[in-house]
Design a protein around this nucleic acid. Sequence first.
DNA 1: GTGGTCTAGACCACG
DNA 2: GTGGTCTAGACCACT
Lengths: 131, 131, 131, 131
Amino acid sequence: MNIQVNIVLGSDVPIYRQIVEQVKHAVATGALSEGDTLPSIRALANRLVVNHNTVAKAYNLLVQDGIARSEKGRGLFITAPRNLYSQEELRRRFDEAADRFVGDVLMLGFKKSEIVAAIQSRLAEVTILKD
Amino acid sequence: MNIQVNIVLGSDVPIYRQIVEQVKHAVATGALSEGDTLPSIRALANRLVVNHNTVAKAYNLLVQDGIARSEKGRGLFITAPRNLYSQEELRRRFDEAADRFVGDVLMLGFKKSEIVAAIQSRLAEVTILKD
Amino acid sequence: MNIQVNIVLGSDVPIYRQIVEQVKHAVATGALSEGDTLPSIRALANRLVVNHNTVAKAYNLLVQDGIARSEKGRGLFITAPRNLYSQEELRRRFDEAADRFVGDVLMLGFKKSEIVAAIQSRLAEVTILKD
Amino acid sequence: MNIQVNIVLGSDVPIYRQIVEQVKHAVATGALSEGDTLPSIRALANRLVVNHNTVAKAYNLLVQDGIARSEKGRGLFITAPRNLYSQEELRRRFDEAADRFVGDVLMLGFKKSEIVAAIQSRLAEVTILKD
DNA sequence: GTGGTCTAGACCACG
DNA sequence: GTGGTCTAGACCACT
């Protein structure tokens, strides 16, 4: 299975993080699974028209996070999932994300049910998470 | 009604954004409402032990978002809500926030029901939004 | 296309607003268009002999008004125009500006035809507005 | 003839300037003419719910500008019109106001004809200016 | 190199 | 007292 990475330049999310997140997302949805290969650094950098250091940084993070492993001269391969952070760290990140989301959305005037529905519909696409 | 702002120094969330979020939250929960005054820039800066420019920046953002109005020499006051942004812009900001949240939370391993519940519990405190 | 920003020090118009107005004017006349880059914060600050925070403040306002977008580590870029504000907000801002202008000009003794002509001649340079 | 002064607290125009402008405007439209009397400082301050120093400052400016004269113990009286500024100063103020107005309105998306019409309709109310 | 955040401290205008 | 503007200079994250 291959992966289609797209980036948004004007976002406040750094490019390298967008790449990381999309690979993670692909793994989460099953679009990528163990043993699948990622595009080469230069190929992806070329296609996204970004500096190849940026792609390299993203790939390094994927390796550090245990999501991919690099094999010299062959490329990067998706690894089997494993736990990355401590429970505390997970909870801290989760709460921070939730706080930020609610804070961002608070003054936009949407109904609570719309807000919840928007999250639910996005989560519906995800296969890696339990209900 | 008054507001009690607290910040965490050394967080990866900028100080000025912590202030903004807390004021927004206070407005959203009804703890602050139209006509209420915010602590003076220098008084709050003093109490939080941050530079007054940092507080000023936070307050500026509140003014730009139509949440507060500033009166030179008098202070900052919470304003009545008004339709500042267009429908498209509201939707754009909403989608951006939702996408970001789901992306941030994806790999943390929480159950979908937990994620939704976390949002719902935060929204439960909010009084300015319809169900 | 590039932009040539000039400021008048010691004016009663704040430096950051002079910068904002000139960029807006350049966009309005078509001298700057989507995708064009603004001078880097520090480069412009250097050339204008002002503090880089002052330029940063000006650029921030441009971003908040949807005129430019910032990309960390890359620079600031002119964005495509979009409907940022609601109709009510546009009208409110328009009326405020018009009231202010007429109030400012009232006691200066110019003829009505001169006042209208001055506005028309300035608008003649603008390419982004319909007649 | 009496004058009805109203102020807007949340405006970026200082209160004392609002008072000055409204008196000027009243003179300009003929609502006030030579010999008419202004409300006492304390009476006006009371009615507007502002500090009496603010009203005093406004009245001082009116006297300095030659629009009113104070008679001890009797009050302030409107004087005959006379020129206040040099030609250069008048032109400078005029251009600054016009530049600011056009700058403020540029990105709001109104048609040029609407902009001109808005100014013309506001000027139509003014009686002090020649066509 | 780029932009983003923050501090320390100054001066001004307004009430 | 209040908020607004600006400087000088620091450190950080991103490309």
